[in-house]
Design a protein around this nucleic acid. Structure first.
Lengths: 103, 103
DNA sequence: ATATTATGCAATCAAGAGGTTGCATATGGA
DNA sequence: TCCATATGCAACCTCTTGATTGCATAATAT
């Protein structure tokens, strides 16, 4: 579950839309997810496999159907990565500000 | 500052490394940032421009040098996006769990 | 003034990403 | 059983991305 893979998976408008749909609509089949998107089922499948490869989506087979759902852990991990950097940077700016004020 | 652009910008190992270096080392010139990375200066410049296009990095010209630094706002925005989805999904799982337990 | 340093611009190239189509497979319903 | 449905697999194509090289420009140092 590399940070790079997670961000790369989310760096595509189609896949962001799929994540939104999974967030709102819960576990769904490929055909449900692709409905309304202007692309073939196979294109959507590839996107879902990329999201799965990044750990963002899990799939469960049920008969001839495959239900995909979001896995919040990878989302949390990516959010932490970002938050850590934002925090460290804010600290740096604060220290800089204090140094300037002490003159 | 689109969500997609931010994630796409972070979805590359080289650019993640540049963000790490900017987090730790503060504002730096292109040549400082590329030092140790096995790539040309121009390659690094392109990566930095992508980060800048996503709003993650700001650049300030000083004489013949260009100093690049992190902009924490975009990092915060992306972290919020992820946190929101993780939260919504956790709520969904909780509701599902309660429904199952009430049987 | 001249040389050095830091960067920008442009052409070029190989590899990968995103998409399509056609066919194969397997499950569910009539 | 027979047909419709949901998906997987694979070949193929185009456009984008990441990277390189060579040259131009502008600021600093000697």
């Amino acid at each position: 579950m590399s940070t790079e893979k997670v961000f790369a998976a989310l760096g595509d408008e189609t896949r962001l839309e799929l994540v939104r749909r999974l967030t709102v609509g819960g576990p769904q089949r490929t055909l449900d997810l692709v409905a309304g998107l202007e692309m073939s089922r196979q294109a959507a499948t590839k996107h879902l496999e990329i999201l799965e490869g990044a750990g963002l989506v899990k799939s469960e087979k049920s008969g001839r159907e495959v239900l995909r759902s979001l896995d919040p852990e990878a989302l949390d991990a990516a959010a932490s990565w970002l938050a850590k950097r934002a925090m460290e940077w804010d600290d740096r700016l604060d220290r800089l500000k204090m140094m300037l004020e002490s003159d």
